[in-house]
Amino acid sequence: MGNGPKAVAVAEGVTVRYGTTTALDGVSLAFPPGVTGLLGPNGAGKSTLLSLLSTARKPRSGTVTLLGEPATGRLRVQRLRHRIGVLPQSFGCYPRFTVLEFTEYAAWLRKVPAARRRERAREALRLVQMERYADRRMGALSGGMLRRVGIAQAVVNEPALVLLDEPTVGLDPAQRVGFRALIKELGDRCAVVMSTHLAEDVAHVCDRVCVLLDGTARFTGTVAELCALPASGDTEISGTAVEAGYLHLAGAAAAAG
């Protein structure tokens, strides 16, 4: 995955450390439009990378460029945040708010102009097929519905870049299938970066994939390219094939380590 002109987000040589632990070690990645999956085990640095892309965290070294601008400086970062949507891994909400109120509140946080807030909130809810639940309290939603509202709040500001951290965790199989379709549809509108440790998610949703292992990027390319890695021997895109490709990389990393 090169730093082509179409990249919406670019990380170059970014390093992040938590005390003595290195979460990301000189990672360079670029994220074009479409859905890019960040695949890796727990602790691989996926959430840390997403936090860099969301501007919630600054790298110890290296640079992050978003929408063609370096993500530095208070005012520039504030301006960039207008065009970024985020769904954190543990997505909390205010249970007393209705779905519409909560999405409007998210629009307010993203500085959507007051005159457009309600319209944008309704549009976002329509996109995630939650419009008919607009008046339901957030506290009364199921896990799947809550995730959909999470997507709605992430896209309420019509972002150019949407960051989803483990969006399918905790969903039942039926909900997961519906959710993948939603993310796929989202990828037609903007660049989506989705972290996951589920090979199935990558196989069904992502156009491109990046495998992170121990804080370093071990693979970047299309899903088909991951599936076609020698150890997998697979030509078809499937969860099993993605998994095989991933295990090949993990094995190679372990052998190298």
């Binding site: 207008h82 985020v86 909390g92 909400c93 993203r110 500085k111």
Partner: peptide, 22 residues
């Protein structure tokens, strides 16, 4: 304190609107 109780801090920390406004 609801942002702590309902775990919305990671989300509201990425907002475009400043902490003072919130």
């Amino acid at each position: 304190g609801r942002s702590f109780r309902h775990r919305t801090r990671p989300w509201s920390d990425t907002a475009a609107r400043g902490g003072w406004s919130q």
